[in-house]
């Protein structure tokens, strides 16, 4: 043990420092570079972002979109996790496995499967027409709704798992005690189940909200021209417009949003305890 053993950590630490931390500093440097060569450090990339209405409203719509996806995921995940933890007995493990399996399917394969599912003349349109629910083209692909569907599908299983793990640990005796002391079902839920599952909920919110902020694949493929978000702006700057310095600045603004959300959510998670 001791000094020699500590050295074992060195290769891993170096990889993180050289290939994750150092590049971020290089990116920070680029974000303060102007378009003219050798002009020294400048704030112009950041001022350009904050002065243009276009970028500000895009930022706002990215945040709104992520909040919406997160809330929809919560509405799906909480009841599902609750049922899995408290109601299902025999098939619980099977359901758990079925929820986890999509973690191991390719992101692009999943997005692509939504593309062929939602497209005009696709399966969903066929099914809905046969049921007489719609008449004519579905018109769902390349809308904001399609992006939301794709993102919820991609991320809600994470939230199910985090909430499930929190609820599974919850002692049934607590619930029984609460009921026998005369609390209504709703009161028990509000005063015991909900606060004790708060860390799982916070973890789940984080696991959905943060990846949503930074994604560009789902919005690009399922949203088409209606799918513009911060992520696609950054991608465009690097791959189409070659505005690398400006792209680096936008990437840092995105990173700041991520850091703020992570610290906010982890505070929320720590707050979970019984009064």
């Amino acid at each position: 043990m001791g000094a020699k053993r500590r050295l074992l950590a060195l290769p891993g630490v170096s990889v993180i420092l050289i290939f994750a931390v150092a590049p971020l500093f290089i990116m920070l440097y680029y974000s303060f570079q102007g378009d003219s060569q050798g002009a020294g450090l400048t704030l112009e990339n950041y001022t350009r972002f904050f002065e243009k209405q276009f970028y500000l409203s895009l930022t706002w719509s990215t945040i709104k979109n992520s909040i919406f996806v997160t809330l929809v995921s919560l509405a799906v995940s909480y009841p599902l996790a609750y049922i899995m933890a408290k109601k299902l007995k025999g098939v619980r493990n099977i359901v758990l496995v079925l929820i986890i399996i999509p973690f191991f399917t390719n992101q692009l394969v999943r997005v692509y499967s939504w593309l062929i599912f939602l497209q005009d003349g696709g399966i969903l349109e066929n099914v809905l027409s046969a049921l007489g629910i719609i008449n004519g083209a579905l018109g769902l692909l390349y809308t904001r709704a399609a992006v939301v569907i794709g993102l919820v599908h991609a991320f809600f299983p994470y939230m199910v798992i985090t909430i499930y793990l929190a609820l599974e640990k919850l002692d049934n005796a607590l619930l029984e005690a609460s009921a026998s002391l005369g609390a209504s079902k709703f009161e028990t839920f509000r005063k015991i189940t909900l606060p004790l599952s708060a860390p799982g909920v916070a973890a789940g919110l984080l696991l959905v909200f943060v990846p949503c902020l930074g994604t560009f694949v789902e919005p690009r493929i399922l949203g088409g021209v209606n799918g513009m978000v911060i992520g696609t702006v950054i991608e465009d700057q690097f791959f189409r417009i070659y505005g690398w310095n400006f792209g680096a600045a936008v990437a840092f603004i995105l990173l700041a949003m991520v850091i703020v959300s992570v610290s906010a959510f982890s505070r929320l998670g720590r707050g979970g305890s019984l009064e």
């Binding site: 290939f19 994750a20 290089i26 990116m27 994604t215 950054i234 991608e235 792209g247 990173l255």
Partner: peptide
């Protein structure tokens, strides 16, 4: 440090490596 590489979007990690190469 380990968790940082999990939280920072891949988009940003990828682009910063691209800038490092440049």
């Amino acid at each position: 440090a380990t968790l940082m590489t999990l939280t920072v979007p891949w988009l940003i990690l990828g682009l910063s490596l691209l800038l490092m190469i440049r």
